[in-house]
Nucleic acid binder design. Structure first.
Lengths: 147, 147
DNA sequence: ATATAATATCTCGATTTCGAGATTTATTGT
DNA sequence: ACAATAAATCTCGAAATCGAGATATTATAT
C-alpha cells in the first residue's frame, strides 16, 4: 500500500475513534449527571469505592488529572461529605482520601445502574466483538504509550 | 453468558477505550502544541482548510462545541489573523468563518507533519486491523448515538 | 400583514482544568 | 550530621468550556 493511503487510513481511524468516544462519553456523562456528580467526581469515588482509600497523589495518576485539579475535586467531595482527608502517620507528606459511609452508600446505590447504562450504550457489539476490540485497543494504547 | 459478565465486559471495554483514547489524544495534542495551536483551534482551522469556509454555527456542530465556546475560539483565531469573520449577505443572521492566507499557509505547512505523527501513533495496528476497527467503532458509535 | 416560532450569534457568570511555583516532609549522598 | 534532592500537597492565576439568556434576523402560521 502507498504510504499516503496508510496515513489516510490512520487519520480516518483517529477521526472515527474520536467521534465514537465523544458520543459514548456524552451518554455516560448524562447518566452520571443524574446522580448529582460530574465525571471527575464519579471517577474519584469509583476508585475509592472499588480500590479502597488512596493517597491523593495516586488518584491523580490513576485518573490522569493534574495535582492542582485533584485538590479541587477532593475539596468538593469533602464538602459534599462523600469523602474525607486522613493524614498518613508513616509519611507526613501524604494525605489519604477516604470514602465516607455516605459516599459508600451513594456508590452502592449508583453503581449497578451505571453498569447497566454502559451495557446498554455498548449494545452495538456482541461479546466476541467486544473481546476483540479490547485486545486491539490495548495493542494500540500500549504502542502509543511507548512512543 | 451471564448478564453480570456481559456488563463487566462492557465496563472493561469502556475503560480500555477511554484509556487508549486518552493516551492517543495526549500524543496528538503534544504534536499540535508544537505548532502553537490548541486542539480546538487546530480542529477549527482543519475544518476550514479541508472543507472550505463555514458558518460559525456549522463549526460547532462539526466539532461538537457549544456556541459560546465557538465564539471564544473564533475570536482567538481572528486575533491571530488565521481566520476572518465574513457576514453572509443572503442571511444576515449568519457569519462565515473564513481561513486567511496566513491560516492556509500555516495549515499547509502543518498538515503533512500532523498526518505523519498520527500514522506513527497508530503504528500498533496494520492496515487490515485498522479497517476492522473503523468498522466496529462506527457500529458502536452509530448504536450509541441512536439511544 | 402580523404575531409567533425558529435560527444564528454573542454576552456573561460559573465550572473545571492546567501549569508554575510555594511549602512541608522524606530521602540520598557526602 | 548536613546539605542537596526528591516527593506530596496546596495556592494562585489563566485558559477553556458550558448553559442560560439577550439580540437580531428569518421563517411560519393564522
Amino acid at each position: 500500500m502507498e504510504a499516503a493511503d496508510q496515513q489516510d487510513l490512520s487519520l480516518k481511524l483517529f477521526v472515527v475513534l474520536s467521534r465514537a468516544v465523544q458520543t459514548i462519553t456524552k451518554r455516560v456523562e448524562e447518566d452520571i449527571k443524574k446522580y448529582g456528580l460530574n465525571p471527575t467526581e464519579f471517577a474519584v469515588l469509583e476508585l475509592l469505592f472499588n480500590k479502597g482509600d488512596q493517597p491523593i497523589q495516586k488518584i491523580g495518576e490513576k485518573i490522569l488529572l493534574a495535582s492542582s485539579s485533584i485538590t479541587y475535586v477532593v475539596d468538593k467531595l469533602e464538602k459534599k461529605q462523600l469523602l474525607a482527608r486522613k493524614p498518613c502517620p508513616e509519611d507526613r507528606r501524604v494525605t489519604y482520601a477516604v470514602i465516607t459511609p455516605e459516599g459508600k452508600q451513594l456508590m452502592a446505590s449508583i453503581f449497578p445502574h451505571h453498569k447497566a447504562a454502559i451495557e446498554e450504550i455498548f449494545g452495538g457489539l456482541d461479546a466476541e466483538e467486544k473481546e476483540l476490540m479490547i485486545t486491539q485497543l490495548k495493542k494500540l494504547g500500549f504502542y502509543a504509550k511507548g512512543l
